[in-house]
Amino acid sequence: EVKIALDTAPDLATSGSYNWAAAFGAALTEAGFEVREMPRGSVGNEAEMFDQVTTGLLEISLSDIRSVAQVDPFIYGIRLPYLFDDAAHMQRALQEGGVFERVNAALGTQEALLLAVVPLGPSSGIITTDTAVRSPADMASLRMRALDDAQIAMYEAWGSSGTIVPWGEVPAGLQTGVIDGYLNSPFVPIMFGQTDFVRNFSDAGVIIPARAVLASRQWYEELSDDERAAVDAAVEAADAATAAWLAEVAETSLTALEEAGVTVQRLTDEERDAFRERSLAVYDSDLMPSDDVARWQDIAAASR
């Protein structure tokens, strides 16, 4: 039995990772595997999903990037602002730049395997409560929810400010004004029912929000050659299905937001460049080793 631990509700309309999981599961079923989807949270939180993958109790997990980064922080490079032009570029870079080989060498000691990096949805924009954002200057008085040091540095480079608020307190924080917004995919406010108080979305296209598909190495290595080939093929099929879905929702995700009453700011390339140029400060901060940053820039350039 192949258990796939989901990270979102099983909703093909809004979840990129579920599109991946569904296509992967369908391909495996066709190849004769018995597949079982484990609902979000039913096998535990991120730390538990990772632990179960590494002990061979869970075959497939849709994990956060942090789960991989706690073994090899190099993967955090995919969160560098404006590193990739789009999701397709990111996938090319990961393949051609040898990222999977490098990360999997580190994950090997933990009996885990990175099968794929899956876009959660269209690229991240600026989600705010009251303020419509078209330029960094619009964010001067905003306090944004940040994930880590790098995001705080990025908001500061934009002339805004960041603060740490755990995801569980984000809805209350937005409603009471502890924070004025956060950065994520356009589907996120819809998925989490926040469109009553999130009033603005700006498609700044900062990063590709992504999940890491982890597999148990024990499970993977004990497969027969045929079975392993079927799994590899299922990964490719799932990647393709997610890419197709992503192309489809690039625009419809924005109209879905508008239907939910959220004002969408569609930025011009010039307006987006203003964010891009200021974001470069993050590359020079020492939050990530400069060798690693240079490596990521090379990888991205080579596959552009």
């Binding site: 535990g44 730390a47 538990e48 632990d51 179960q52 002990t55 755990p166 569980g168 307190e169």
Partner: peptide
């Protein structure tokens, strides 16, 4: 049962 220690830790490690 081998997940017990992780389970105990993770289910207490809740900010709220």
């Amino acid at each position: 049962l081998s997940i017990l220690p992780q389970r105990v830790f993770a289910q207490l490690d809740v900010f709220a």
